[in-house]
Structures are given as C-alpha cells and as structure tokens.
C-alpha cells in the first residue's frame, strides 16, 4: 500500500458516499444516471467475487463490502425508493453498446482464461467506460448540480491517483498490470473534459457546469 493508492481509495469512497447521501438527503435522484450506477454495481460484483475465495487484508475485505453495499443501495434508491424522481428521459445512453464490446474484449484480452480472471478483466474494462451514461446525461440536460460535480470530481480523481500508484509500484516493486493501466488511462481521460469544467467553473463560483 502507498499513499497514492490509499488516497485513491478514500477519494473513491468519498465519491460513493457523497452520491448516496445526496440522493438520501434530498430524497431525489434528479440528474443522476441510474444506468451508470447499475454499471458500477456490475463492476463491483464481477471484480469482488474473490471475496468468496481469498482473503487479502481486513482493509481490502472491508472496503469491498462497503463498495458493493453502497453501489446496490444507490441503485435501490434510484430505481425503487425514489423512482418517481428518476429522470429516465435524459438517461438514455445505450449501455449495451458498452457492455457487449467490453464483454467481448474481456474474452480476447486477459491475463488468464479462467472465469474469475475474465470477470475481473470485464470489470476493469467496464469501469473505464461506466461513467459515460452519466456524462452523456449531463451533456443532454446541459447542467449538473454542484454535489454531482463533486461526486464526479472524486470519482475521476481516484483512478488518476491509481495511475500514480502504478507508476510508484512499477518503480519500487517492479510490478505493473498493463490491462489495469490502459483501462485506467482511458477512464481518466474521459474525465479530463469534466475536470477542466469543474476547475474553471468552480473558480467562477457558478453552481452549475454546462458541458459543451
């Protein structure tokens, strides 16, 4: 464990908690893409199956359980409890255009052709594009609530910190995982446009960002 991975995990946890609390406290999921949240729940489910097969550390197990729990709680709030506030008309990204190619790629490019490894690879590839429905929805509505932009900021920051963690681990441990790195670079690039808006609009104090 290094400081970059730890702050990355805490940034990820912050994003997940910020979103869950926002929906719970405002009792509304307006402006939130339910599709992205379903994809994240799928990412955690397929990646953390090793909870059943191997124990790495208390931290590792605890965080995985928290991530999975919050992901499903968020999906529940969006599609069940606060269904009336779900903005289905703007959450129209065709997720099958993400899941099918990612599923195919996981079969073609992986470290080991075993079920657990293919599911892990699928989750790595899927995570890199899972935010697209949310970014698409924001571009359609033309605005995002401040709290949603904070959620996206921490979510984007977490994988950017992981990129530094992988540089650190390559340099100090001679360890690298090309699949995780390439997917992490793609994932972080997708946030660049948003990061630019978040920083520039954030300074001007306007409470809504309007992606082009």
């Amino acid at each position: 464990m290094n400081i970059f991975r730890l702050t990355g995990d805490l940034s990820h946890l912050a994003a997940i908690i910020i979103l869950l609390l926002k929906i719970w406290k405002t009792r509304s999921c307006a402006g939130i893409s339910g599709k992205s949240q379903v994809l994240f729940a799928l990412v955690f489910t397929t990646r953390y199956l090793d909870l059943l097969t191997s124990f790495i550390s208390l931290y590792n197990t605890t965080m995985k359980i928290i991530y999975i729990g919050c992901a499903y709680a968020t999906v529940y709030l969006i599609y069940m409890k606060f269904k009336a506030t779900y903005d289905g008309n703007h959450d129209t990204f065709r997720v099958e255009f993400l899941v099918v190619p990612v599923g195919g790629l996981a079969f073609l490019v992986n470290h080991d052709f075993s079920p657990l490894e293919i599911l892990w690879t699928f989750s790595i590839y899927l995570e890199s594009v899972a935010i697209l429905p949310q970014l698409f929805m924001i571009s359609k509505t033309g605005e995002a609530e401040t709290i949603t932009t904070h959620y996206l900021f921490f979510l984007g920051l977490y994988r950017a910190l992981y990129l530094i963690n992988w540089i650190w681990r390559f340099y100090f441990e001679g360890f690298f995982d090309m699949i995780a790195i390439v997917a992490g670079v793609v994932q972080t690039i997708l946030y660049c446009d948003f990061f630019y808006l978040y920083v520039t609009k954030g300074e001007s104090g306007s409470n809504k960002i309007n992606p082009a």
């Binding site: 990820h12 790495i56 995985k64 991530y67 490894e117 360890f175 690298f176 995982d177 995780a180």
Partner: peptide, 10 residues
C-alpha cells in the same frame, strides 16, 4: 505472475 499481484488492489 504480476496478474495475481493486481488483486491486492480494489
């Protein structure tokens, strides 16, 4: 191999 080592990450 290195793949197993990734699995200590979230």
């Amino acid at each position: 191999g290195t793949a197993n080592k990734t699995k200590d990450e979230l």
